[in-house]
């Protein structure tokens, strides 16, 4: 069935438009999600590589 739908698609430009729309929607969602994080959380995350020194001064 899917095959025949695609066969009839012909030169219809939906092949290019659908992914583009899909990406725009996806992009808006991720920007919205990223921007909605609280500042404290973002600061904590950004500093994570600098605060991962959990090593002890003892050796095995």
């Amino acid at each position: 069935m899917f095959k025949y739908i695609l066969e009839r698609a012909g030169d219809i430009e939906w092949m290019a438009i659908v992914p583009l729309v899909l990406f725009v929607v996806f992009f808006i969602v991720i920007v919205w999600k990223a921007m909605s994080h609280k500042k404290e959380f973002v600061d904590r995350m950004a500093n994570m590589p600098l605060q991962d020194d959990n090593t002890l001064e003892v050796e095995q």
Partner: peptide, 24 residues
């Protein structure tokens, strides 16, 4: 960040960077 001893410039940008990059 380790080598520069500075946190990443924008963590929010890194989130957008990640999802947009892998999707595209």
């Amino acid at each position: 960040p380790k080598a520069a001893n500075r946190p990443v410039y924008s963590y929010k940008l890194s989130i957008i960077h990640f999802w947009a990059l892998i999707f595209l």
